[in-house]
Design a protein around this nucleic acid. Sequence first.
RNA 1: GUUGAUGUAGUUCAGUCGGUUAGAACGUCGGAUUGUGGUUCCGAAAGUCGUGGGUUCGAGCCCCAUCUUCCACCCCA
Length: 409
Amino acid sequence: MTVNRPRGTRDFLPEDTARRKYVENIMRNITCNWGYSEIITPTFEYLDLFTLKSGEGIERELYNFMDKGGRAMTLRPELTAPVMRLYVNELQSFPKPLNLFYFENCFRYERPQKSRFREFWQFGVELIGSEKPDADAEVIALAYALLKAVGVSCYMKIGNLAVIRTLLRGLQPEIVSKVMRLIDKKEYVGLEVLIEEIGVEDQLKFNLFKLIKLEGRYITPQVKEIVGNIPELVAFEKTLKLLDTYGVDYFLDFGIARGLDYYTGMVFEVYADGLGAQKQICGGGSYQLIQLFGGGDVPSTGFGIGFDRIMEICTLVNPAPKKVVLISKPETHLEAIKLATELRKYLPVRIDLMERNFKTQLSFANTINADYVIIVGENELGVGKLTLKDMISGEQELLTLGEIIEKFS
RNA sequence: GUUGAUGUAGUUCAGUCGGUUAGAACGUCGGAUUGUGGUUCCGAAAGUCGUGGGUUCGAGCCCCAUCUUCCACCCCA
């Protein structure tokens, strides 16, 4: 009876892992260069942290459990809430703005499908303390830079919830939620039905449909005609101007609702092709969560990137390190270990661990696609040298250890 | 939670109408005597046919359940 991997989890083989680490580090380096610092939060948290943020409803898609002390816990389903909790616990008195990022695994108890797993990795950024257009613009521009750097073809949609909230301010909160959900899903027929049911004014209905059907990049003048010259829109225009300066490509879409109530103003989403139904690779916006966790009235902006989805469509190839195998004979094996130890200061070296004969060691080197073989035999040691064999060309030369090190450095 | 497909060595797949001991290729390991790989040849290991029931004299094959994987819904990354 073999034990299998739990549902919705994956094993990453050496090749997969190398590629993931490569892409991951590219994203890390870029984000560090934008002045963001990486943080790590616990893999599990109190269940409350997430029900507080997203409502009791999400409990059914959480990996939650009671610990031995009878506390309700859960594996984290996302990282925005943990980062906000960390901020409230530890960082409230630090200088603003705080530029943080994370790269961690998350867990959701859902049916797996294409690009959706029960354990998945999220890369994300949270900029805490500024609600200025510059903050929004930098976060979007960083997301854009990351996606460009890892070579995925995608498009970005930016919206602003303040606009649509202004339009809907006369309606009851539950109605607003319903409307937003339908808008987010672009279910215009359903939306029309709902609007008929609740009987809103014709003017509002007209404006609403006009707003959500606006498309393109320079549509803010038309938006102004609909909702007026509200301060949020003025700030948003400023953000967009900054984005043009950053050189970010985007579409505007005031129909983005992001499903969640705590987003306050700017929201954005990035979609890619080739992922089936799960084609959103990034989502973010500005939000107010800190008060919810007992902190002050501090604004923040952030995004999350679905790293597994990036890996599925990203075209980057990690550079493979040269593979070197050291071949020895029983008489020279101890000397080979000493040489390997020295060479391992410079590059990856494998030695025989199977007591194989000369020929089989060479054959093994070939099987694993080694680039070079270094022969540590009596003949070589007799003259104080080693044979370096190029496994691709088949050529070999007699060199000193120093010469070999020089060749590889 | 809902729907549809799926499952046979490590991998990709055969397996006749339900009939004896489930096969192949690739891969892995070993061998073809001396310190030179790839090609070739020989050999070996490797499977409770996803699992559990049922039908049958007899099930890899038929039926039921369950699990996995994959696609989609829901939700979201």
